[in-house]
Amino acid sequence: MATGGRRGAAAAPLLVAVAALLLGAAGHLYPGEVCPGMDIRNNLTRLHELENCSVIEGHLQILLMFKTRPEDFRDLSFPKLIMITDYLLLFRVYGLESLKDLFPNLTVIRGSRLFFNYALVIFEMVHLKELGLYNLMNITRGSVRIEKNNELCYLATIDWSRILDSVEDNYIVLNKDDNEECGDICPGTAKGKTNCPATVINGQFVERCWTHSHCQKVCPTICKSHGCTAEGLCCHSECLGNCSQPDDPTKCVACRNFYLDGRCVETCPPPYYHFQDWRCVNFSFCQDLHHKCKNSRRQGCHQYVIHNNKCIPECPSGYTMNSSNLLCTPCLGPCPKVCHLLEGEKTIDSVTSAQELRGCTVINGSLIINIRGGNNLAAELEANLGLIEEISGYLKIRRSYALVSLSFFRKLRLIRGETLEIGNYSFYALDNQNLRQLWDWSKHNLTITQGKLFFHYNPKLCLSEIHKMEEVSGTKGRQERNDIALKTNGDQASCENELLKFSYIRTSFDKI
């Protein structure tokens, strides 16, 4: 039985969820670079991206490699990797027998973001014989899940209580170790020597080791999670996991709180800001991140802002960003909400898709409305799209047979046209069989910064309504002859009103 693990408890099935942008060198404390989270699957090609990484700022997932063999891993080693800020997950990587050479110096898994409450997941690794993470000293947050690894031993010899604050939620089941077939031998045991430290858990006094050649490092209890030197002297209180010299914040392997210019500090002093819960960055760093993602459509890219001495992905609820200094300031009234469309555009074809934009005031991208039916549609669209004030790209209304009016965009005031449909149009209306009105132009103002209007096959939309939009939106004169079809717009509506004058002759039985 794995020490510190839980057996036999019912657990939810383990679901495996399925960018080499360097964020800056980590400095003297770390020998390499800070790398983003990685999802490495199918083959070993991307694994080489770990070569210079000291910190993975995010998670590391290595999974679904069915053609790899043990010899493929023999020359692979990433000794610079010290810390993973989120979680480490391995799933069905064939041929991998140990992690001792792959990650010989991995010391800390912070667990800032977890995989279903777990910071370390080893699942269905069919050839893994031992973990071998002999320098792993601290899992700051989260638990361990090690399950269905039929060859995995050296679990009962690990004292997880020396690595985690609590072992109650560890789930370590259905491994070879369960069948008591392992016969784990710690260093020196074969020669009758006791080389590794022994600890007591559940009444068992057991030597602690990761492999037959690597003991588990056990520091004096007084050192807590700070770690200790090879001689057993406690590291500085700002260290986490390990250090090369005692009581020196510049000799830590990793930091308990924050890293700044080669030393570990309790908090980031001005003019620095907390970033990702582990390091200090200056304003320029946060500003660069903001600008890199301002026009990016890459998933996970955030326009970072500053709030409460932190550089964070977005302002919290009730705050909006001051564009001059990136500071989050309290909103006066309802907060603006910028919604970034991942692929640059979004099609609204149902109430469900409209709900995804609920509360958005600025759309960074283009909207395509293609709704053919739905219950209580006008009210639903207004509830979900009615706060949109600005669209950076274009607005396209296409084959939306259920629409009679666009009044559900009740606050839309600006279409920038930074991206144009077919390279020309910022407003595009095609084949809307029941569209009769755009907006009530006596109450609604709309500016279209650039781009043209396109109207074709809107049989109940009168040309007068379209011409009014040209005047109000500032697009009059931009359109070419064929942009607004004269014969297919309003051709099934009563669009022309003329005053009919009647004269009559009164007659009676005795007068003409």
Results as ranks from 00 to 15, higher is better:
residue 321 M to Q: 13
residue 152 L to I: 11
residue 31 P to A: 03
residue 298 R to G: 12
residue 94 Y to I: 13
residue 88 L to T: 00
residue 44 L to R: 07
residue 40 I to V: 15
residue 79 P to I: 04
residue 194 T to V: 07
residue 110 R to W: 02
residue 329 T to W: 09
residue 223 C to R: 02
residue 313 P to Y: 03
residue 190 A to N: 11
residue 155 L to Y: 11
residue 279 R to K: 07
residue 224 K to V: 07
residue 287 Q to N: 08
residue 262 G to V: 02
residue 121 V to M: 06
residue 295 N to S: 10
residue 89 L to P: 00
residue 140 T to E: 04
residue 64 L to S: 00
residue 118 Y to K: 05
residue 140 T to L: 05
residue 85 T to N: 03
residue 152 L to G: 01
residue 28 H to Y: 13
residue 267 T to P: 02
residue 307 H to Y: 08
residue 175 N to R: 10
residue 100 K to I: 07
residue 241 G to F: 04
residue 188 G to N: 05
residue 157 T to L: 09
residue 110 R to C: 09
residue 228 C to Y: 04
residue 190 A to I: 05
residue 316 P to Q: 06
residue 146 I to K: 01
residue 228 C to V: 08
residue 226 H to E: 06
residue 43 N to W: 09
residue 151 E to C: 06
residue 272 Y to L: 15
residue 274 H to N: 15
residue 36 P to C: 15
residue 70 P to M: 10
residue 280 C to A: 00
residue 312 I to R: 15
residue 156 A to H: 08
residue 228 C to M: 03
residue 332 L to R: 07
residue 58 G to M: 00
residue 161 S to K: 09
residue 277 D to K: 07
residue 302 H to Q: 14
residue 244 S to M: 14
residue 300 G to M: 09
residue 280 C to R: 00
residue 115 F to G: 01
residue 235 C to T: 00
residue 32 G to T: 12
residue 122 I to N: 00
residue 333 G to S: 06
residue 131 L to N: 01
residue 137 M to R: 11
residue 47 L to V: 03
residue 86 D to Y: 01
residue 162 R to N: 15
residue 310 K to S: 09
residue 239 C to Y: 00
residue 242 N to K: 05
residue 255 C to N: 01
residue 289 L to D: 02
residue 179 N to F: 07
residue 135 N to W: 02
residue 168 E to F: 07
residue 224 K to T: 10
residue 56 I to P: 00
residue 267 T to F: 15
residue 31 P to R: 02
residue 335 C to Q: 04
residue 30 Y to K: 01
residue 316 P to A: 07
residue 240 L to W: 00
residue 286 C to Y: 08
residue 99 L to S: 01
residue 61 Q to S: 14
residue 149 N to L: 01
residue 226 H to T: 13
residue 178 D to L: 13
residue 61 Q to M: 05
residue 247 D to F: 06
residue 30 Y to L: 13
residue 95 G to W: 03
residue 226 H to L: 09
residue 101 D to E: 13
residue 185 I to H: 06
residue 176 K to P: 10
residue 120 L to Y: 01
residue 270 P to W: 13
residue 135 N to D: 05
residue 268 C to V: 00
residue 274 H to V: 11
residue 79 P to S: 07
residue 180 E to H: 00
residue 197 P to W: 06
residue 282 N to M: 07
residue 300 G to C: 11
residue 175 N to M: 06
residue 258 F to G: 03
residue 168 E to G: 10
residue 282 N to Q: 12
residue 115 F to W: 03
residue 132 G to Y: 01
residue 249 P to S: 06
residue 249 P to K: 03
residue 121 V to W: 03
residue 86 D to Q: 12
residue 170 N to V: 10
residue 243 C to D: 04
residue 279 R to S: 06
residue 69 R to H: 11
residue 60 L to V: 07
residue 192 G to L: 11
residue 155 L to A: 06
residue 145 R to K: 13
residue 149 N to Y: 02
residue 210 W to S: 07
residue 270 P to E: 08
residue 293 C to G: 01
residue 198 A to N: 10
residue 286 C to T: 13
residue 146 I to T: 01
residue 313 P to D: 10
residue 276 Q to H: 04
residue 171 Y to T: 12
residue 71 E to W: 02
residue 123 F to Y: 07
residue 282 N to V: 03
residue 161 S to P: 02
residue 170 N to Y: 03
residue 69 R to V: 07
residue 191 K to E: 03
residue 134 Y to K: 00
residue 209 C to I: 01
residue 242 N to M: 10
residue 301 C to D: 03
residue 304 Y to I: 03
residue 211 T to E: 15
residue 50 L to P: 01
residue 55 V to F: 02
residue 169 D to F: 08
residue 222 I to V: 13
residue 225 S to C: 04
residue 184 D to L: 13
residue 158 I to F: 06
residue 110 R to D: 00
residue 55 V to L: 05
